[in-house]
Design a protein around this nucleic acid. Sequence first.
RNA 1: GGGGUAUUCGUUCAAUGGUAGGACAGUGGAUUGUCGAUCCAUAGACAGGAGUUCGAUCCUCCUAUACCCCGCCA
Length: 593
Amino acid sequence: MRIKRDHRCGELNKSQVAKEVRVNGWVNTRRDLGGIFFVDLRDRYGLVQVRFNNDLPSEILDVVKHLNNEDVIAVSGTVVARPEDSINKKIPSGEIEIEAKDFELLNKAIPTPFEITKRETGSEDLRLKYRYLDLRTEELKKNMFMRHKASQAVRRYLTEHDFMEIETPVLMKSTPEGARDFLVPSRINPHKFYALPQSPQTYKQLLMVAGYDRYFQIVKCFRDEDLRADRQPEFTQIDCEMSFVDEEEIRGIMEDMIATVYKESIGVDIPTPLPVITFHDAMERYGSDKPDVRFDLEIKNVEDFAKATDFSVFHSCMENGGVIRALPVPDAATFSRKKIDELTELGKKYGAKGLAFVKVQEDGLQGGISKFINDEAAKLLLDKTDAKAGDLILFVADEWETALTVLGALRIFLAKEFSLINKNEHKAIWVVDFPLFEKDGETGRLVARHHPFTSPKLEDIDKLESDPESVKARAYDMALNGYEIGGGSIRIYQKDLQQRMFKALGIGEEEAQEKFGFLLGAFEYGAPPHGGIAFGLDRLIMVLTGEDSIRDVIAFPKTTTAQSPMDGAPSGVDQKQLDDLHIELKAINKEKN
RNA sequence: GGGGUAUUCGUUCAAUGGUAGGACAGUGGAUUGUCGAUCCAUAGACAGGAGUUCGAUCCUCCUAUACCCCGCCA
């Protein structure tokens, strides 16, 4: 290239008027007025208008006249102030333009499959196939830059607080607890596999044993599970671990880190300390273990009312150990039957058997289950829910977690429906006192709600064998705008307690030794009390930038079918590669019906 | 594993049981202050398969792909 840039397009302004500059970039748009030709030239830093006059040599004009969007060009010329009435206030360089003196076409571009300058064109599928073009857009450039700034803020904050960044292996031992592992066959060790880490959990604990008392890593993790708008098979965590700490200290440091990230990337203040809510209260009030606390719309316990009604569904539910909860919805008594059916359908997706409702009118309760409600019950209901005329009250009768989850989902849905969420508001909250265990839906076995290294609350340790389901964990999650963006715990650091934990999970001594012997062994050599946390960086950036999809903050994401339309991953491999790995492929059993 | 939605020029949106239309992008031309320039001209599409029908882009079924959700995500 003959004309090498000495300035960046987006950084030119009035102070450079009369200066000779050379710029390189992409043709964003062009406007041919016959005797005068404009190009909006784009680079990473922004746009600048270049003016080509028709007194330029014809060999230059001939090429300029046929420029296309996304051609890569080099221009040398003079920065000139624009005429007063031609100032473009939409771009930072709008007060000036470059009067071209010399020009070089660096590379032609064929017509793009969608228009870079128009976000509304092109399906996401298509944009993913041409991700390198999508990344040229203002929106993705902004997101990538936010991500960079947030990562830098994290590194700087943690470094200032004496955390050491240490890399842990990506090829590790498979320990199939919870999420499915991605497996990597070993060529040198036939029939053996590595797993990609779901998290560097065991390594960071071993680093604590090694005495590196404050560790962090911004690290890729992998989980072979189904995808979602906020879930990718490979994702980045801000992984931290500390020794000689308790929950309060970890939460204090980490909430300040998140506040710092917010301040440095989008300039928003997150007041700390963050509110803390127990898992039980979060469920009871918001129907979620990651509550969005930017709006009220709280769930109420209405069992006294339910007992006073003649509604048999309520009575039989409670007799079978179920609960009755209500969600009063202000000003929703005007909802049509169709609308309420829609809410019922939503509830059913979350496991509700049905959705009961009443409408509060000036002259009493109407519609839905109102005919089962006597005056006494009605009073109990209105007292409990603070409902007033014009409100709608929704009821779910079910098992505790189901009833609340359903109402929590309805709460979110209705908040969006009534535009109760201010997109510019950001609210974070700690959720604590999680149960240590939960029942696996399929097998009925106890599994760790967080992970098997989480310490039980000290006062609950005695119940580990006798009443495990009542044991609470020394765990904490951070919820931000209704997303779980981080979670951690104080870990078990004593061998015997860890062994009791494995036993409670139904992991036999031999199996525990085989899978986690290295960790148990390490605990015998002076393991300090320790705990930590991991934040989902992608999700954090998604919430920070206000995007609805995690794909919009990842440079090269996968589709929900875990594929990359751009490079075609995953793909088949040569027989030779399989032979090296001692792998034989089984036929795919495509069952029908 | 299950449910939902979608699939029409390169892109985006429309219409239609009988000849598929506009906008942007493309191509050619006009145009000296535009800035998502404008004007004129031009080329360009019914995801695949089966069925119903005299005739299907439209109706039915299947397949594929994408997205959203449930399950799953220690």
